[in-house]
Design a protein around this nucleic acid. Structure first.
Length: 1002
RNA sequence: GCCGGGAUGGCGGAAUGGUAUACGCGUUGGACUUAAAAUCCAAUGGCAUUUUAUGCCGUGAGGGUUCGAGUCCCUCUCCCGGCACCA
């Protein structure tokens, strides 16, 4: 009878039950949420803030990828949970829309990239909304919006003001097919990251950002943030800091030195005496003409004097201090044949001193030069600047460099204005030396030859001294025409040519050693020259064997081998001053020795290069700079920002490598903001990485017209509490944005040194065949297909599946069968909530169903903890366990089932809302609180105590938690199974882990 | 070569030093059905057995620590990711 009644009741319920139609309920709730503005983050709310961020997408024509969905839903689950836990959550989204794919699309289809971008954004937006992700759409940003990119330009100008954005002529990576300069980061295995085309080297003037100035802090500050270990490791690896020493090897050539003193100085005063002595000690010839009227100089008189009394030739090195540099330049101007080197020590070219009034000669001097002529008279130029100089403004060095070229060496004199009794910097640059970098200064005694890169300046500079120049030149030319790809592909066999005509001197033992040119030495790392220690470096060993150079052992090894270099650490041998020392101590001691004797110093080198910031393309932020013939490089004044991208007929880059902007004459032509004369705009644009380097700040205050973001708002929201993105951005975007943020921090514009408190990465979603999803393989899954599939899909199904497929940070192949399982799970929930009888439990669900209640609290605990640790897959498993048990009950306590819906709501928000409504709630589930678990209920669970004999499981007994060891042993001894194994032997030892295991050792 | 992370059923994967294989997929059997699909129930690491219950073996390989090891230590193999002639 009762049975029959149940059947009738069930049938009635079945009639009432609706089919699960995800499409219907999902759209319904999405509209509702939008209407109620439920996901808008409130500035300055009293609730604790939580800034959750995902990398904003590039709105490509291909639409949303299932990989995007994985990252976005994962963080959506977190955002939704934190809201339920009472946090003021900001979860924003926007568009990183400048860049090549859109430009290429524009070229192909003759559509303005702005229009293509807007179209793509609309598609992405629709797709994202169909997933029910709880973004705060009111903070949407677009990097291509002039209101946005004016601030990208503004920040660039800050870099420029601080000297961290500079123009530099350099060999750059040039992609032949994209016709674009690539950053080092965009070259993968010598090929263009985008088109796989070959990359060649071209000399070009480029805008650079001085990220190397932040290298140390970018490494060190990783200790202050919570990033996945592998992300930290990759960043450290990429920056590639190595500590070692710089060592100078003197060249064994003799030179004729001429020293021109400065204002008020004499031939005998200290500065020159020490230098003369040092140079003569080394066998060089030194002349110091005493300039006439040193306290009241007349420039013409001094020039005539020098011309008359000094003989210049191709071996002359001219060192001029202070006012001597003015005389020197004038003398050089009039020379017939070039000298070798000019060293300006605290020199200047225009009459701007810090103590102008004390200098009567300022007015009498002729300050006009013919720089072109001067340039032709010098092969090598060094400009030494004392950054603490009290007489000469530091811009003077830059002015000399602008006028005649050369290299500025910044340093501090032992006394101001390089007037000390021995100035190491002056000595170092007066001498002719090869500077090298090594991480193993302890092997210096084992250096038996040296190698310079084909690009090294010594080759050009020493043309007249190199006896086999044509052979060397041939090798260099060949090496330079090789692309990076060719150079690395042919790396097996090392090649090189000995440079004849001079030798280098090993400072520790005075040995004269040969210098080679070889392309296994890179011009871009260290100093472009190395000391070769074939005994302890495999590359040098290979080269030495081929070119028959000596191999010396200077570090003792236990694993001595005749056909391999020993590169490990050990005891120094055959190394006079460091013999017997361990590597670490040996390095320290020899470095100290080098420093003391002016042969070198401790040094740090980085693999990281400065960031090439120019692109010769249309679809990017114009670099806000104006070139004026009289004023030079002038920043666009802030009131003229943004520099808008003009419309152009043709988006293709020009064959000269200039941006298409260069073809718009009206746009390029502009008045100089400083002097008002005709000037030209910079036509290069910024790389794709610019806009994304600061976008997380703009979300704090997306509509601000007066600043990139309001200080107080940033104070409230920053730093980002959780930032998730792909591993592929670890060395590019992540590093760049940390760099920008640190720079802004130094400028006092943001409040924290690091932008992201925690950084995680999602694993890639692979295709079912285990390969990458790609159009060319035809294995791409479109999320729309899943969302719109009525029978087996829906947004909730897709969301859950993407999180259930495997550990969040690992790459997992897609599985259509896996989706089926998730949809079944959702259907099961649907059925449980409609078919089962819900019992009111008046505060205690445990009274209605104790075991389900215990399971519920286990589930509350596990789901909450798992979400925080991003173990979404196991959180979902736990919910499945709960539903499986619930589905086997006739009657369910309604309180427990409500709580379960709250747990489910971050994962399957639409279903949770719908069922929440169906079981009779008026208000949205979003207004609920995240449940807390009750540890008392958890402790009431009966557990299986494992009984082991000699460490092997023999039985389990059901017990209440908290059983004592005594009682446990008593119970165990009653078990027949256990008795058999004890077999009347004596129990020697009892190991008892409460509530887990009892081990009897016999 | 260097740096990181891995290796667990037929598959995706779970396991604070304490019952290895949770959860899902698949497979097999059963129920429902004229039938199929869907759904529901049950079984599902291997081997052995005159005791169907019990034993033994099992987390890439080999050693070790421990009452007890997928988990810790040492050696090695393979796979994935990053860097790479970086001195």
């Amino acid at each position: 009878m009762i049975l029959q009644l149940n059947v009738i009741r069930k049938r009635k319920l079945r009639k009432k039950m609706q089919k699960y139609c995800p499409q219907k309920i999902e759209v319904k709730w999405q509209k509702q949420w939008e209407k109620d503005n439920v996901f808008v983050a409130e500035d300055y709310s009293k609730k604790p803030k939580k800034y959750i961020l995902v990398e904003f997408p590039y709105p490509s024509g291909a639409g949303l990828h299932v990989g995007h969905v994985r990252s976005y839903t994962a963080l959506d689950v977190m955002a939704r949970m934190y809201r339920l836990r009472g946090f003021n959550v900001m979860y924003p989204i926007g568009w990183d829309a400048f860049g090549l794919p859109t430009e290429n699309y524009a070229i192909k289809h003759k559509i303005h990239p702005k229009i293509a971008t807007q179209k793509n954004i609309a598609i992405f937006k629709k797709q994202l909304k169909s997933l029910g992700i709880s973004y705060d759409w009111s903070r949407e940003i677009d990097t291509t919006d002039p209101d946005y990119y004016q601030w990208t330009q503004w920040i660039f100008l800050k870099f420029f003001e601080q000297g961290l954005a500079y123009k530099h002529k350099m060999p750059v990576n040039w992609c032949r097919s994209c016709k674009i300069v690539l950053a080092n980061e965009e070259v993968v295995d010598g090929r263009c990251e985008r088109c796989q085309g070959e990359v060649e080297k071209r000399e070009k003037e480029q805008w650079m950002l001085k990220i190397t100035a932040y290298a140390d802090r970018l490494v060190d500050d990783l200790d202050t943030v919570d990033y996945l270990e592998k992300i930290k490791a990759q960043q450290i690896n990429w920056i590639g800091r190595s500590e070692g020493a710089e060592v100078n090897f003197e060249i064994d050539q003799k030179f004729n030195y001429v020293i021109l003193h400065g204002y008020g100085a004499t031939k005998e005063n200290s500065f020159y005496c020490w230098l003369k002595a040092e140079l003569e000690k080394r066998g060089h010839r030194v002349q110091i003409p005493q300039l006439p009227n040193t306290n009241n100089p007349d420039i013409l008189e001094q020039i005539e004097f020098v011309k008359k009394n000094v003989k210049f030739d191709e071996n002359t090195i001219l060192i001029a201090h202070s006012l001597g540099s003015v005389v020197a330049m004038k003398v050089l101007e009039g020379l017939k044949r070039p000298i070798y080197k000019y060293v300006s020590v605290g020199g200047f070219v225009t009459p701007e001193f810090l103590d102008n009034h004390k200098r009567p000669f300022v007015k009498t001097f002729n300050w006009r030069y013919n720089f072109e002529k001067i340039c032709k008279k010098i092969i090598k130029i060094r400009i030494l600047r004392d950054i603490k100089d009290h007489k000469i403004p530091s811009e003077q060095a830059d002015k000399i460099k602008d006028a005649i070229g050369g290299k500025i060496i910044d340093g501090t004199g032992t006394a101001k204005h390089f007037l000390g009794k021995l100035e190491p910097l002056v000595l170092e640059h007066s001498l002719e030396q090869l500077k090298i970098f090594t991480t193993r200064p302890d092997t210096l005694y084992g250096a038996t030859y040296m190698v310079v890169a084909p690009e090294h300046e010594i080759i050009k500079n020493y043309q007249v001294r190199i006896t086999n120049y044509s052979e060397v030149e041939k090798y260099v030319k060949k090496a330079k025409t090789k692309s990076d790809l060719e150079r690395t592909e042919l790396q097996k066999e090392k090649t090189g040519v000995e440079i004849r005509g001079f030798k280098a001197v090993n400072p520790v033992n005075g040995e004269k050693i040969s210098v080679f040119v070889a392309d296994y030495v890179l011009s871009t790392y260290g100093t472009g020259a190395i000391m070769a220690v074939p005994g302890h470096d495999q590359r040098d060993w290979d080269f030495a064997k081929k070119y028959k150079q000596k191999i010396k052992t200077v570090v003792q090894s236990k694993v001595a081998s005749k056909d391999k270099a020993f590169a490990g650490e050990g005891i120094a041998v055959n190394s006079k001053i460091i013999d017997g020392l361990e590597t670490f101590a040996a390095k320290k001691k020899i470095t100290q020795w080098l420093e003391k004797n002016n042969y070198g110093r401790k040094a740090i080198n980085y693999k990281l290069r400065d960031w090439i910031f120019s692109r010769q393309h249309y679809w990017g932020e114009p670099i806000p700079i104006i070139h004026c013939e009289t004023c030079g490089t002038v920043p666009v004044p802030q009131k003229d920002l943004p520099v808008r991208l003009p419309d152009v007929k043709n988006y293709e880059p020009t064959d000269t490598g200039e941006s298409p902007l260069a073809t718009i004459k009206d746009w390029v032509k502009v008045k100089c903001p400083r002097c008002g004369s005709d000037a030209k705009r910079e036509t290069d644009t910024m790389p794709n990485w610019a806009g994304s380097s600061w976008y997380f700040l703009r979300y704090c205050d997306p509509k601000n017209l007066k600043a990139f973001a309001d200080e107080r708002k940033m104070q409230y929201w920053m730093p980002v509490d959780l930032y998730n993105g792909g591993m592929e951005h670890t060395t590019l975007h992540l590093l760049y944005s940390r760099f920008w943020h640190k720079f802004l921090y130094d400028q006092g514009l943001v409040g924290t040194p690091e932008p992201y408190a925690r950084r995680t990465s999602h694993g890639m979603v692979l295709a079912e065949d285990g390969r990458k999803m790609s159009k060319s393989f035809g294995n791409v899954i479109n999320p729309d297909e899943i969302v719109q599939n009525e029978e087996g899909g829906g947004a909730d199904t897709l969301r859950l599946y993407e999180l259930f497929m495997g550990p969040f940070s690992e790459a997992i192949p897609w599985s259509m069968d896996g989706i089926k399982g998730i949809r079944r799970f959702l259907e099961k929930i649907w059925v449980v909530y409609q078919e089962k009888e819900m019992i009111k439990c008046g505060g205690s669900c445990a009274r209605v169903n104790k075991s389900l209640s215990i399971l519920l609290h286990q589930t509350i605990k596990k789901v909450g903890e798992d979400i925080e640790n991003m173990n979404f897959n196991t959180a979902i498993s736990q919910m499945m366990i709960f539903i499986n048990q619930a589905s086997q009950q006739e009657k369910l306590p309604v309180g427990a089932m409500k709580i379960f819906l709250i747990l489910l709501s971050p994962f399957a928000p639409h279903m949770a809302e719908e069922l929440w409504e169906k079981i009779g709630n008026q208000e949205s589930i979003l207004k609920e609180n995240w449940p807390k678990y009750n540890s008392k209920i958890l402790s009431e669970e009966q557990i299986n105590l494992i009984i082991q004999v000699n460490g092997r499981v023999r039985d389990t007994i059901k017990i209440n938690r908290g059983i004592s060891q005594e009682n446990a042993v008593k119970l165990a001894e009653q078990s027949n199974k256990v008795k058999n194994f004890i077999n009347r032997q004596e129990i020697k030892k009892v190991i008892f882990v409460p509530d887990k295991v009892l081990n009897l050792v016999v």
